[in-house]
Design a binder for these strands. Structure first.
Lengths: 146, 146
DNA sequence: GCTTGTTGTAATAATTGACATTACATCCAT
DNA sequence: ATGGATGTAATGTCAATTATTACAACAAGC
């Protein structure tokens, strides 16, 4: 199955907060309008991003803001913050291989190494891309529209 | 969410077929016993592996065999063969960003590049590991048990 | 201090995909 | 032809995603 859209939504949210911070109060309703999902979905994501120290959210009066430079937040940080996969394991290993079978009782050990290796390659790539990269590029696309 | 266990099961199946080819008739029931799932699950996977030219399956009299050297089959080949993710897209992009919003109508373009880049890193790693690597290592684990 | 607008979060439901299982037609070798 | 397999449709269960309603907690302005 695919990696939850929480991930792309979270990045979308961060791009919005940064882009509109000077012109609007960026509330969960505002963000929900841009992403096109229910505001509650946004609030839950903001909570997760807050727990990771990526954003600040003000209760009562409302609004979200970036907590630290987006150049210091990588795709991997966001990916982990919003729990894009379960238990941090990208691959779902079948649960009960037969321990009576020589292959069944050894395949897990062998495969785990390889799967971790693949997962690491993916996470390293994510670590190399910052949210600032994405926001900067998005703003340049917006400029080109004018 | 995680990548379907079809992927690890398929690799387990291939390891079994190769390991037991000389001593048993490797049927879907036999494989189901080692993996510990329903034989129908195995048969479906075998169909997908067959369609990818990785195994041969004999109807009627029964049994599965490897169709080409496992050193020529990579983890990526198996991954694609059994449809581990949907539409070949690892990431699920939220469907309807608001086109009225400057960020909403541009985020897709920007992000797609980055997501493809991450997915490519992962697939390249998978391409570098053959099923033969895995089977060889498994057999050496089995040897050590004796 | 009360009102207003917002966040935080629980509860519930709809939808979807994964996986399990039954059933049976089709097929091959003996 | 028969016995043991495969091929595949149909059905059911379960878990995760996402949507949505509801409301308490809260901050700021009047």
């Amino acid at each position: 199955m695919q990696i939850s859209s929480r991930f792309t939504i979270a990045i979308h949210i961060l791009a919005c907060i940064d882009t509109f911070k000077d012109d609007y109060k960026v509330t969960s309703d505002f963000l929900a309008g841009s992403v096109n999902v229910n505001p509650v979905v946004i609030r839950r994501l903001l909570q997760q991003l807050k727990a990771a120290g990526i954003v600040r959210v003000t209760r009562g009066s409302g609004g979200a803001e970036i907590a630290k430079p987006l150049s210091e937040t990588t795709m991997l940080d966001v990916y982990k913050a919003v729990d894009s996969i379960e238990n941090g394991e990208l691959f779902h290993f079948h649960e009960n291989p037969n321990q009576e079978c020589p292959v069944g009782r050894n395949i897990h050990n062998v495969l785990d190494d390889k799967l971790n290796q693949v997962q690491a390659a993916m996470e390293n790539e994510m670590r190399s891309i910052t949210i600032q990269d994405i926001v900067t590029e998005t703003k340049s696309y917006i400029q080109k529209e004018l």
